[in-house]
Amino acid sequence: MTMDAAAPHCLLGMFDEDYTLDDYKGAEPRWCVGCGDSAILAAVQRLCRDEQLAPEKTVFVSGIGCSSRFPHYMHTYGFHGLHGRALPVAEGIKLQRPDLHVFVITGDGDCCSIGTAHWIHAIRYNMDMTVLVLDNGIYGLTKNQASPTSPLGLKSNTTPQGTVLEPINPISVTLGIRNASFVAQAVDWIPELVHDIVDAAFQHKGLSFVRVLQRCPEYLDGRYDAWVKDPGKMLLLNHENGIQTSPALASVYKNHEIHDPADRNRAREIASTSDPIPVGVLYRNQSIPCYENPRGPDRLYTPDVVKGVLEKELDRFTIQAVGGGGD
């Protein structure tokens, strides 16, 4: 019995064509020239290409804001919804359709101000999705108002005398939630790491929270100049369970730390530093259960099965009148 003919699966695989970067490009981006969003878009498109995500099985959900236009620029399914509400929408999608790859694109105002409740609880639910917070520290779309992550003292249209409130640190807050399972930080000006970190986030089973520090050339120009110009002011976090910087990048960014993403306490310390800016996977815990798993045990809910269940339920409440009254 010789069986050296090829299996159908091998042959069938040959028919599949690879997706290219162009397959993920949607509408022409309309961000300002010099905007950090573009780097993130390109990195995410590269990720989709590298992972060969079927465009029809991929959904990008966003709220409102500059960054939330992101889904329009992807040639996948997109959901450009309401200010602050991207996360609950994404959760509904994921619960309904665990087979879809769900990405959430949100901003500092969208996530950390109007959508704060959803952010905190999304971390708690830990549904399997990748959340990118494109944090430029300013409201751009509504034209220059201070955001919850604006640096102290920032003058804006709503704070002409400068802000008086300490900014929120999204990764510190996220790390404070017990169910956090993946927390990372990237910066738009090192696109290779945006790609690598988002890739690690995508691979993670559970909610991966990635804050991407991002420059706004329009309203917060020069915010990160010092760090862009001096690679020594960046702190790259390397670990076999996190990301590993390429040699080329490592030779530019020489400031490294071996950080085990299992170490939450160290992650919290790192998260609280802003100079140097830490970049990499701060925390990762694969053992936290995902919320969508409880649904749908191993049964097939055919109409007949559903009908059977319903009949059983109705039985519980059914009375058959005895009619005679008193007998």
Binding site: V33, G34, A39, A42, E192, P217, L249
Partner: peptide, 25 residues
């Protein structure tokens, strides 16, 4: 190129001189 952030500054300036590769850089 690998460090390019796709910010469109150079391509806006002169898109015959500067262009994006397959990786959008």
């Amino acid at each position: 190129t690998p460090r390019c952030t796709t910010c469109n500054e150079c391509t806006e300036l002169n898109d015959r001189m500067f262009a994006y590769n397959d990786e959008m850089q």
